[in-house]
Simulated assay, not measured.
Amino acid sequence: MTAEEGGGGEARRGEEGAEVVKEEGEADSKSHDADEVAGGMGIDRGGKWSRIAMLCKTLSEIRPGKELWKITARITRLWDAILRSSGEILSIDMILIDEKGTMVHGVINKAYIQKFKTLIQEDNVYVIANVRVTPAAKTYRSVENDKVVNFLPTTTIQKIKDTDDIPKYSFKFCNIDMLSKRINIDTYLSDVIGIAAYIGLVEETRTQFGVSKIRDIVLLIES
């Protein structure tokens, strides 16, 4: 994707060879002209980003079956998916959230980690183009969404100026009744909030993956 397609500004190469575009705050005196060339993708001097949003899809609009989706979202959570038996990093995973508060699981597979690792950071807002949307796994979904955003070799990512229009966090806390309905149902990972009434010591236990460390915690949560 060229600088014109990606939102104006001066194109450069990141350390891993992935194309990135200067953030608005880094732009030189020609950045205003670049905004016009980019078809309104740049952020104007007032910090408004509505033009960006108009050219991107919301996370509720994207669907499996098309690779060239362009989205604007915040990385609200970021972690490494690790194979417990060997410690091998399988992917970089993230939770993306948009201005509607919609959340979706994002994945950078092992083959592309070096390309994108230095270009993403938790809490930043990005325009991400050329991503593939696939159905989510049937079990242990990190958010209540049946889609996953997958980074491709052709995916481009542009950090843009932060905006209060995109929430920094979003949770769906479960009370006791909701948790009771999820017993033996492993579709979603559940969010809870409460008071830690007891925190046990770290102990070792043997599982099918080898020796793991566990800690018992008792939470007092809303009924």
Rank of each mutant, 00 (worst) to 15 (best):
K181D: 05
V127Q: 04
Q114K: 06
A111Y: 00
N184W: 15
T163V: 10
E203F: 12
G87C: 12
I193S: 11
I71E: 01
E26H: 11
G14C: 10
S180C: 09
F151A: 07
G65E: 07
I62G: 02
D186V: 14
F116Y: 02
P167W: 09
M1N: 09
M1Y: 03
R141I: 10
Q121P: 06
L55T: 05
D216W: 08
G106W: 00
M41D: 03
R141Q: 08
F116V: 02
K57R: 08
F171H: 11
L96S: 08
V125A: 03
V192L: 03
S50H: 04
Y188Q: 07
W69M: 02
V125L: 07
I176C: 11
Q158K: 15
K117L: 15
K100I: 09
Y198Q: 12
H32L: 13
I89W: 04
Q208H: 14
S223A: 14
S85V: 15
A18H: 12
F209I: 13
V131I: 12
L59D: 06
S190R: 09
L83G: 03
F151W: 06
S190G: 09
E61W: 09
L189E: 09
K147V: 15
A197P: 01
D164S: 08
T58G: 06
K147T: 02
E26P: 08
G101Q: 13
M41H: 05
V127R: 02
M94Q: 01
V127C: 01
L68K: 02
W49R: 07
K161D: 15
M1K: 11
I183N: 01
P167V: 09
P135S: 13
I221C: 12
I183P: 00
E16K: 06
F151T: 01
M1H: 09
M54K: 07
P64C: 12
D93F: 08
V127L: 02
F173R: 14
Q121L: 15
Y198D: 12
V104I: 13
A27F: 09
V192M: 14
D146I: 12
K66V: 14
A136Y: 06
I75P: 00
D162Y: 13
F116S: 00
I183T: 08
Y126M: 05
T139A: 11
T102S: 06
W69K: 02
I92V: 01
A38C: 10
S29C: 14
D177I: 05
L59V: 14
S29T: 15
S31W: 09
I82K: 03
V211S: 06
N150W: 11
N184G: 14
R51L: 14
S31V: 15
K30M: 11
T58E: 04
A27Q: 11
A73C: 05
R63W: 14
R51F: 10
M1G: 08
K100H: 15
D80W: 06
G14R: 05
I52L: 03
